[in-house]
Design a protein around this nucleic acid. Structure first.
Lengths: 189, 189
DNA sequence: ATTGCTGTACCGTCTGGTTGGTACAGTAAG
DNA sequence: CTTACTGTACCAACCAGACGGTACAGCAAT
């Protein structure tokens, strides 16, 4: 009856609890007590799995990073190795994630957490370095590729922070434009 | 002897103190005690000028917004009213601000503060709506203009967060590319 | 003397983290 | 099969420090 949970299962429940709190109430509400309650275990139990809050946050970043990278890999497989393929996969994955409405506020809180937790920030920086390296090997002009990446990141930011984000129709147009431009190997004038 | 300071002067000293703390140590170190010490007045004195922390943060956002908008206005005057002029000014002002090395970490902390202080976030959202409206009146295709704005914002984000930001040489190239593209009234393929 | 401003002492609350302990599953010797 | 023991998972209670905010007395200029 009611056998014990494994550590990985519990950790996943904890990460999901964290995410729900961040999305609903933001970083300031992500206290150990709140996480414990949301994940339906005690604070002591929570701290059994993560020695301290920093470790919890780091785990949370890895968790979400893995989700994103898994999707990214799926999409790169689809795009094959045509010029700009990787960049296109990056754009698609980014836009897909951020337009999932529940994710937007979650990501905003995660970004805020980076300011507070240096190790999480470091992790993200490493990821971007890796992605940027992929983009530069995308078989198109690196300045052009970087420029397009920045447009994707800017779109991501504008939606995440609700900085005058494009409406649905405009979003489609911009998305199409970005995808179209990734098929050019350099700027045209 | 030693005549009294005016309230505005003191407030400016406080804002500058806040900024120094944010830049050096981040949002979590922006406590009332720390701000008072950095601005060389007592906590009581600080709370005389700002009834509470929220008011202080709001003031800080207005302060930095005014700096940015003043510069923006200078640059729009220079650019005149050629097509894409306003967008170009926005790009120049943004890049100028973010490449001032001391500002980058300050802005990162300010953004993090937005997650915590809803009123500051609201203020920034209003600004972006205003800027976006200007951009759409830039006499170039609005999708194209928005796309370019997002690239600027993405560049801004990548430097602010140190997300694989372009090195100096690449930055120049991207900046040139953006400025060049603002002179096109629509995408070319 | 009044007003504008400053400084100090203090309070309540929140929060990360510690501690000591419980429940239970597995294992292996007798 | 029982007993003794180990490691994993979890919990309730508590604590120390930090932080936002208040109260109030004092001072300097007009």
């Amino acid at each position: 009856m009611g056998s014990k949970r494994t550590a990985v299962e519990t950790k996943r429940l904890i990460f999901e609890g964290c995410s729900r709190i961040l999305q609903r109430e933001g970083l300031s509400s992500l206290t150990l007590d709140a996480v414990a309650e949301e994940a339906q275990l005690s604070k002591g139990g929570l701290l059994y799995h993560f020695p301290n809050k920093v470790a919890l946050i780091e785990g949370l970043f890895e968790y979400h990073n893995n989700i994103f990278e898994a999707r990214l890999q799926e999409l790169t497989a689809v795009e094959g190795d045509a010029p700009g393929a990787w960049l296109r996969a990056y754009a698609l994955a980014s836009i897909e994630q951020i337009t999932d409405h529940e994710n937007a506020s979650l990501y905003a809180s995660l970004l805020a957490a980076e300011e507070k937790y240096a190790s999480a920030h470091q992790l993200m920086r490493q990821k971007y370095i890796k992605w940027q390296a992929q983009i530069e090997q995308s078989d198109i002009d690196p300045v052009w590729a970087t420029f397009l990446r920045l447009a994707v990141d800017g779109l991501w930011t504008s939606i995440k922070n609700q900085y005058a984000p494009p409406d649905e129709e405009r979003l489609e147009a911009i998305k199409d434009l970005i995808l179209k431009l990734t098929k050019q190997s350099q700027p045209v004038s």
